[in-house]
């Protein structure tokens, strides 16, 4: 596709990120969740999955869904630099999504974690996968993280024992609105990764194939009574 000069000026500079190797996790229900990096062709399913949650105020789904929708769309339209999206899917159906951004070789900027399928720690597994990508594959030194919900604060700040750098504001300032910045350093990651991060590689081809074409959920526990195309 030809890109005109003005559009070239609008696009952020991109670096080629190391790919995230797909993995598979057996959830407590016995279902297998494939975790893989998203591609441009996944965007319609991703946006369609996130969109209905914009109206769910409970547990800050509205804030996270709005922001994630914006991030995925901006990535698709080349308006955010070096972003990656990981998706967890069960039989191809999207169970959760995480977004994040590579800032430079030292720093990762964690964006959002959205759990669709609840009660099976899908969000916790995907957040861990995101940190794994930053620290193991992109080989950054640390990841900056903020929480926008009490659940997020407990899950990330407390359970990972993140370093509180909010007192260093504005020198340390997360991209998401200047809320207090916490940091996952390599040392902290090494201390928790054995109990937080899991998954088997390589993913058998027949299992990986189930995640090839992502499906939007037809129902959400967050939206009782809601049905897609109803």
């Amino acid at each position: 596709m030809a890109i005109d000069e003005l559009e070239k000026k609008l696009r952020p500079p991109e670096v080629q990120l190391a790919p995230y190797p797909s993995k598979v996790i057996t959830l407590a229900s016995g279902e297998t969740m494939v975790v893989r990096e998203c591609r441009r062709e996944d965007v319609p399913a991703l946006l369609g999955t996130v969109y209905p949650l914009i109206e769910v105020a409970k547990d800050y789904y509205d804030v996270v869904a709005c922001r994630m929708y914006n991030e995925i769309l901006s990535w698709y339209r080349y308006r955010i630099a070096n972003m990656f999206t990981l998706v967890g899917s069960v039989n191809g159906e999207i169970a959760g999504i995480v977004t994040s951004r590579h800032v430079d070789s030292h720093l990762g900027m964690s964006l959002h974690t959205l759990t669709i399928k609840r009660g099976l720690r899908v969000g916790a597994q995907l957040f861990a996968a995101k940190m794994e990508h930053h620290l193991e594959f992109l080989k950054e030194d640390e990841v900056w993280i903020v929480a926008e919900s009490p659940i997020g604060f407990k899950r990330w700040m407390i359970e990972y024992e993140l370093e509180d750098r909010s007192s260093q504001y504005p020198a340390v300032r997360h991209e998401l609105g200047g809320v207090p910045t916490f940091v996952l350093t390599r040392k902290l990651w090494d201390a928790v990764k054995a109990v937080k991060n899991t998954g088997t590689r390589p993913v058998p081809p027949e299992v990986l194939k189930t995640a090839d074409k992502l499906k939007m959920p037809n129902e959400y526990v967050q939206l009782p009574g809601w049905k897609r195309n109803a």
């Binding site: 700040m157 407390i158 359970e159 990972y160 024992e161 928790v192």
Partner: peptide, 11 residues
Amino acid sequence: VWNLPEGFNKK
């Protein structure tokens, strides 16, 4: 104990 009650901001 990993799931501490409210107020205990420890892993």
